[in-house]
């Protein structure tokens, strides 16, 4: 059972406190992991939260991937440890090569901050195993570079291996094949642009993010 959850903080991360609160809500014992420490501190799961790590200079995630903590995260992921990247965290994971593809500027060149509907396409991943297949979840998006792209061969592989875990019902940003979230071949590394930690209370307009976050500690 995964209980201790590490939330990575880079200079410019801005969702780590929300993430701590949200993970405590689903019964985890969350703690922060500092980007400059080359360790995951023995946690049971790692979350890379949203924000603008290293100011998004050069490309989102391009500099964050060289942080000392990322070597430890890569090692943790290779050993089968659950790793979830949300928004900027997804961008970091693609730059680090832990997930395929890349995230480009949104079609329409607008920063998008809005509720989004996501369909659970596969429950075979660390982030969706407690969700219901086919369920439509209300989870907000908040990004400028969330337009998922990959080559045709990678896309075919993602489809064949059922690794597109979440799709937008109404594609907001131009992502290929309406992709909102994907997992790695081991299904223990997941990246998604929407923010489940912002859909954890009726006061926030939705509690649909809880099913996803519960999966991490299921």
């Amino acid at each position: 059972m995964s209980r201790r959850v590490g939330v990575v903080v880079f200079p410019g991360s801005n969702c780590e406190q929300d993430m701590l609160e949200a993970m405590a809500l689903v019964g985890a014992e969350p703690e922060l992991l500092w980007h400059g420490d080359e360790t995951t501190n023995g946690v049971d799961a790692v979350i890379i939260p949203g924000g603008f790590a290293h100011g998004d200079y050069l490309r989102p995630g391009a500099i964050a991937r060289f942080s000392p903590v990322m070597a430890a995260v890569a090692e943790f992921a290779a050993a089968g440890g659950p790793v979830v990247g949300i928004c900027n965290g997804f961008q970091v994971l693609t730059e680090a090569g832990l997930l395929p593809g890349a995230l480009q500027k949104n079609r329409g060149l607008k920063f998008l901050c809005a509720p989004a509907e996501l369909r659970v396409e596969s429950t075979d991943s660390i982030l969706t195993r407690s969700a219901e297949a086919g369920a439509v979840l209300q989870v907000p998006i908040n990004h400028f570079e969330g337009n998922y792209t990959c080559d045709a061969e990678t896309l075919a592989q993602l489809r064949d291996e059922n690794r597109i875990v979440l799709r937008y019902v109404d594609n907001p940003n131009g992502s290929v094949d309406d992709i909102a979230g994907v997992c790695n071949a081991g299904r223990n590394v997941v990246g998604l642009m929407p923010h489940p930690e912002r859909a954890t209370s009726e006061l926030l307009g939705s509690t649909d993010g809880l099913a996803l976050l519960r999966s991490i500690v299921a």
Binding site: L58, R59, A62, F66, E95, P100, G101, A102, T149, D151
Partner: peptide
């Protein structure tokens, strides 16, 4: 390794 993302 750094200045470009070879995916795109």
């Amino acid at each position: 390794r750094f200045l470009t993302n070879p995916v795109i």
